[in-house]
Nucleic acid binder design. Sequence first.
DNA 1: CAATCAGGTTTGTGATCACAAACGAGCCGA
DNA 2: TCGGCTCGTTTGTGATCACAAACCTGATTG
Lengths: 249, 249
Amino acid sequence: MAPTRPTRDPADTSLRAQVYESLRQALTAGRFRPGQKLTFRFVADALGVSLTPVREALRRLVAESAFEMQPNRSVRVPPMTRAKVLELRDIRMAVEGLAAEKAAANATRQQVAALRRTALEIAAARSRGDSATDREKVREFHFALYSIAEQPTLMRLIEGLWLQTGPYMNLLYPDFVSRPRGPQMRARVMRALQAHDAPAARAEIEDDIRQTLTYVADLADEQGNIRPAPPLASKPRGTFRATASLELH
Amino acid sequence: MAPTRPTRDPADTSLRAQVYESLRQALTAGRFRPGQKLTFRFVADALGVSLTPVREALRRLVAESAFEMQPNRSVRVPPMTRAKVLELRDIRMAVEGLAAEKAAANATRQQVAALRRTALEIAAARSRGDSATDREKVREFHFALYSIAEQPTLMRLIEGLWLQTGPYMNLLYPDFVSRPRGPQMRARVMRALQAHDAPAARAEIEDDIRQTLTYVADLADEQGNIRPAPPLASKPRGTFRATASLELH
DNA sequence: CAATCAGGTTTGTGATCACAAACGAGCCGA
DNA sequence: TCGGCTCGTTTGTGATCACAAACCTGATTG
């Protein structure tokens, strides 16, 4: 197996990559609202670079469906619709279920131990109400799990899917995550990995995704599509614009 | 359901989109060899445009894993490895199987009739040894099938996966396609759609992908990775360079 | 004869500029 | 009061340029 070539190459120091990373992180952390519009020049000004690297970073994100190109002008975070969330749910169940299967076949004791450490960090963050690191560590858990499968192409696909669901995941806090469902699921997944029980690992991951995204979908028509979206143009036209701090690197 | 927003917007007349389409088509038609290297300026010269739209088109294709960015310089068509083909095989089975399921639930008599027409065109092209339209129509059949599912996000995902497998599909001709497997599979899929038998439709598509890509994978180590790759630089350094005609539009 | 080093050349990167299309605020007229 | 028009502004697009890093070729040296 070739060494996993990551989508986000840490060795890439180009401005384009840094802009991409800034936007990606803001998106993953849910700092943009669905429907939010962005102009190229706004991003360029906010990050202090020229249009060139911004264009390439934004276009890449559009290619990954993290943003949508409006027919006329400008890009926006795709608005949330019930149909789309359900579509992403079914896709993620199929793809991440596959990854869980392959991971179960490969998993070593050390890898499961590392997962357990991350699970504890999630519990700690959650108990002190730190939803930011909660989200971050949940992501870390899932990707550490999938990386055990050692399938670079599959991994990139999943990263793309998470990028698309990212902006919606804010809706899970604080109500949904307070249920005991998450910790139980992680415990059962780790047990399945240890036993090399691929179908069980798949079933756990599928259940997790189904429950989570069904919950989000049920909120879709109420929230998310309500706000028409504040423009967020190049010049600070209004009084404030600190909606999302876009720091470089 | 929102109207299917296609990945390749036919209304997009920008140079960037035209460059993208040229390269995509060359790739899908298998006109680039795996491992083939391309420079930005070569593409720009070949198409008679400046670097700007070429950069954006190539970067998008890199984002879609249709090309790879080399650490140092230049992009190349990803070389074929056995592990990678098998990975793509399993992913495509999961994703396209899902699409087939959803299509079976939706299919109308008219849609099945349209599929049947395409199947006949495939048979006609194949019987006269026209492998170019054969490939094209096979693609058309599959995408017409998946589009019945009416899942735009899923559709885009599948397009990306086909883009990645495209350069390898030349290996199927002429030996593999001469088997009676293909026509039989298409007949059974159409029967399953007509009967709204989702599991049967999934099984047919899964079998098709498994057999096709397993065949390709078995050729992987022998072919594909042998040639180190002719550079294909900006100036026609050598004597010829008509390896792939990159006509705009 | 092989490894190294120096030169010129190729190549991606980022900034800047010109331009046309889209936008939006304000005016006008019904 | 409201709908349509106009003109200045905003915004994406594509071309061009400067530059540094990577590459290639050939001479030099051990």
